[in-house]
Design a protein around this nucleic acid. Structure first.
Length: 458
RNA sequence: GUGGAUGUAGCUCAGUUUGGUUAGAGCGCUGGAUUGUGGUUCCAGAGGUCGCCGGUUCAAGUCCGGUCUUCCACCCCA
């Protein structure tokens, strides 16, 4: 039988032990901070019904959903002419009824509605699970990646937004990364479109403004014109492009610009409040108001938050915002939520590029017993048990291989200590401990061995 | 979904322009020098249907078509 070349689907990855240790470092750090702020864990299924997913992420998002082919006779009831003439999208909806989750926020909204009677509101939950998007892979973009989400639902107080910024600051400082937190408010964007008289075009306007930094004023205007925004409206937009200064100065400029929009003024008030809270307990990361920050997810209604690395050029490594009515779609209106999502895979890429993973992220075996044969094995096993009980990560080389081979194994596995127990040691009731880094070795009793290991490995 | 690059040994890559016996290097791997000592050194060795499918040719890693992967950009986003 011809062997086939093994492979994995486009945009997915395997993770080796070293990579897993490092990924766990990121997951454990975020989890620790989430817990500290009172968030509780939940998990949801990898797949959701398409009715839950569709229409929540905009037209583009719908296209990026991985759909799962129905089981059984999925073509039943579909005629030949339908197969030939129906649009691919229409056909897809006939043969698929479930899809892989695209993010953790929408499944969470579904969860909240479905479990509303068990939940004690306001509810803080965290969730660390993979999501899937049928996007074209490239740098910092994968088809399967982890999100680490923290959301608070059932409260519209702005302290929640403040706390999210605190969490962001704490996670990234524990990871040793310098970041800038950019904030904005959807109500300000709504106010802008109201003021220029294109209220219903808010999505097109925000998407275009979002690109300002990347493509410049000229191209942004071009795009807006092509979306059917009038030249007169565009002229009214000009002051937005030239706003500058620190957060306070920008807010002052916005205040006079948005004076006629109640929604816009509310957005400004919300940002002000957030910044006030941050003054009482400042964070070390930069927090900057950026009115070009839009974010495509159309369920956001209030605060918008995005975090970028100051040191590595990559997409956003954390993002989030407030959504006032995500649960309304599932029949539970009037519940406001706000949350953030850490992109573990991009954070990994940043830490890797900066070589910022701490040595403590390694999870190597700490002590290897060299195997000198059956008699030695029986002598070693109880010691191995005691060491493990004492918290030392220890293993015995399973076969009586040549010593050179066993030493090479320890060296290449990054095991810092090797214990040699042969005839000499057994008769002396001792163990030879070798430090692989320095090459030093000494003959010790078990208690001394444990004391030394504890002091060296802590 | 659109556009550009890429694929040769386990890894990083030469070789492809101008088709021509047996496809190379470094690192890694295996064995030995060194039968209770790894990381240095020296010696020897193994390892490749040149991404896959098809075409042109006496002859294809090299030319042509298709396809897939990875990377980059757009779109969008973590």
């Amino acid at each position: 039988m011809a062997s086939q070349k093994p492979s994995i689907p486009k945009g997915t990855r395997d993770f080796s032990p070293v990579e897993m240790s490092r990924r766990n470092f990121i997951f454990e750090t975020t989890r620790r901070v989430f817990k500290k702020y009172g968030f509780l864990p939940i998990e949801t299924p990898a797949m959701e019904n398409l009715s839950t997913l569709l229409g929540k992420y905009g037209e583009e998002g719908d296209k990026l959903l991985f759909r799962i082919l129905n089981s059984g006779d999925f073509l039943r009831g579909i005629g030949n002419s339908e197969v030939e003439h129906a649009s691919p999208a229409a056909l897809a909806s006939k043969i698929t009824s479930r899809g892989l989750r695209y993010d953790l926020t929408v499944p969470f909204a579904r969860y909240v509605v479905q479990h509303r009677n068990e939940i004690n509101f306001p509810f803080r939950r965290y969730q660390i699970q993979p999501v899937w998007r049928a996007d074209n892979p490239q740098k910092g973009r994968y088809r399967e990646f982890y999100q680490c989400d923290a959301d608070m639902i059932g409260s519209d107080a702005l302290v929640n937004e403040f706390e999210l910024v605190k969490i962001i600051d704490e996670v990234f400082s524990e990871l040793g990364l310098k970041v800038t937190v950019r904030i904005n408010n959807r109500k300000i964007l709504a106010g802008i479109s109201e003021v220029i008289g294109e209220k219903e075009k808010i999505v097109d306007i925000t998407v275009a403004i979002d690109k300002l930094e990347k493509i410049g004023i000229g191209k942004v205007k071009e795009e807006l014109l092509s979306k059917g925004i009038s030249q007169a409206s565009l002229d009214k937009l000009d002051p937005v492009f030239v706003m500058h200064g620190d957060n306070e100065q920008k807010l002052d400029q916005l205040e006079s610009y948005l004076a006629s929009s109640q929604t816009g003024m509310q957005g400004i008030a919300e940002i002000r409040k957030m910044l006030e809270y941050l003054q009482t307990d400042p964070v070390s990361a930069g927090v900057a108001l950026d009115i070009t920050l839009a974010r495509g997810l159309n369920y956001y209604t209030g605060a918008i938050i995005e975090v970028k690395s100051d040191e590595v050029q990559i997409g956003s490594i954390c993002g989030g915002g407030r959504y006032d009515d995500l649960t309304g779609i599932f029949g539970m209106p009037g519940i406001s939520g706000v949350g953030i999502s850490f992109g573990a895979d991009r954070i990994y890429d940043v830490l890797l590029q900066l070589e910022r993973f701490p040595a403590s992220a390694e999870e190597h075996t700490q002590l290897l017993f060299v195997n000198f044969g059956e008699e030695a094995v029986k002598y070693i096993l109880p010691m191995l048990g005691k060491l493990r009980s004492a918290g030392v990560r220890a293993e015995l080389y399973p076969d009586q291989a040549r010593m050179k081979k066993q030493m090479t194994f320890a060296n290449q596995s990054g095991i810092p200590f090797v214990a040699l127990v042969g005839e000499n040691e057994i008769s002396a009731q001792q163990v030879t401990l070798k430090n692989m880094e320095t090459g030093d070795q000494q003959l010790l009793g078990f208690d001394t061995l444990l004391t030394i290991l504890r002091s060296q490995l802590s």
